[in-house]
Design a protein around this nucleic acid. Structure first.
Length: 344
DNA sequence: AAATCGGGGTC
DNA sequence: GACCCAGATTT
């Protein structure tokens, strides 16, 4: 049997039952694909369900406030996806009468939709013959054909797309795209795949050459930067506190946080206490300050390690523009701050 | 081409 | 600790 027939037969016997696989609705397909970018199926699943419940159609999503969208996205990461999702929903709803583009080229114009996502929607919703190239596809094809191309290079995507296109059955691109990704996710996994039970174990080039664990080749190694955050949680007699929206470029754009003192290294009570008075300009007189966590919480992002301390600042009077503990729960926060609030 | 953007799972 | 996940966008 040829490659695609073997692969598709395997898929039909091993596929997971995922909610976005029981539909060709481009709204649902689009939503799932944005959520699954660099995100595991298990992590994205509850978010897909809550979004489709909260926003049954693209019009419902378009009507929502960005803050509500970010709140539902809270914890999923890469928040530009949520902001782009919302903008694109508004564009589809108002400029296109709710109708999604129906081909790869036009889908590619949407904010947040790149080559992978355009191919996924075009094939799953409209049966366009266009291959998806994601991390799974790189891995499966680089191993099966023993391709040592560095997948971090921009040109690699074209090379693998051309190969995948040749392998696709032109009368059913959707199932092939689903199958190759599922095969990568379940069988041809990154580390120590069980090749003894693989349907391709008599034809996989990497297996024959004992190179399975060396492929795919990926060069980039990212540098991690350390940052030191001191979050100051104001609290008046009624336990009202103050939060602000992050409008700076960089991480967590448009999410909320407590007033922040960022330092070049981990600082002690004395330093932070002085910085609070000199930098934050709170109008209420300070009664006391204490550290909420003795040791910094190390929150690891892909390219930053955040060393976070929370400081509680009790003040006299009533905090202007303060919000209650109940109101706090309605705002979108980075998950590390959300977890802190929940633990208080 | 390289850096940036999250959070969590796995070995 | 290193690497990866149904990648896209900015620099």
């Amino acid at each position: 049997m040829n490659f695609h027939n073997l692969l598709i037969n395997w898929y039909l016997q091993n596929k997971r039952n995922l909610p976005w696989r029981n539909t060709a609705n481009p709204y649902h397909i689009w939503l799932s694909e944005i959520m699954l970018q660099q995100t595991r199926v298990a992590q994205g699943m509850p978010y897909f369900l809550s979004f489709t419940t909260a926003f049954p159609t693209v019009f419902d999503l378009a009507k929502a406030q960005e803050e509500q969208v970010l709140k539902l996205w809270q914890g999923l990461g890469y928040y530009s996806r949520a902001r782009n999702l919302h903008k694109t929903a508004q564009y589809i709803a108002t400029e296109r009468n709710g109708i999604f583009p129906d081909n790869y080229k036009d889908l590619l114009q949407l904010k947040g939709v790149g080559e992978y996502t355009a191919a996924a929607i075009a094939s799953f919703s409209y049966n366009e013959v266009v291959p998806v190239v994601d991390g799974n596809v790189f891995r499966v094809l680089s191993r099966y054909f023993d391709i040592e191309t560095d997948i971090a290079q921009a040109s690699a995507k074209k090379e693998f797309a051309a190969l995948a296109f040749e392998l696709m059955p032109k009368d059913n691109p959707a199932i092939f795209n689903q199958a190759i990704m599922e095969f990568g996710a379940l069988q041809c996994v990154p580390k120590n795949p069980d090749c003894t039970i693989c349907i391709f174990n008599d034809s996989c080039a990497a297996l024959q050459k004992k190179k399975v664990n060396q492929l795919p080749v990926k060069s980039k190694k990212l540098k991690v930067r350390n940052r030191y955050f001191n979050y100051v949680m104001l609290s008046d007699a009624e336990e009202n506190t103050l939060i602000q929206k992050r409008t700076t470029k960089g991480i967590w754009h448009n999410l909320y946080e407590f007033p922040l003192i960022e330092t070049l290294q981990e600082e002690d009570f004395e330093f932070v206490s002085n910085a609070v008075q000199q930098e934050l300009f709170f109008t209420n007189p300070i009664i006391s300050m204490q550290a909420c966590n003795e040791k910094s919480i190390v929150h690891k992002l892909s390219h930053q390690h955040l060393h976070i301390k929370f400081w509680k600042l009790n003040v006299k009077g009533k905090v202007e523009n303060g919000i209650s503990k109940e109101e706090l729960k309605r705002y979108p926060f980075p998950i590390v701050i959300h977890n802190f609030i929940e633990s208080e």
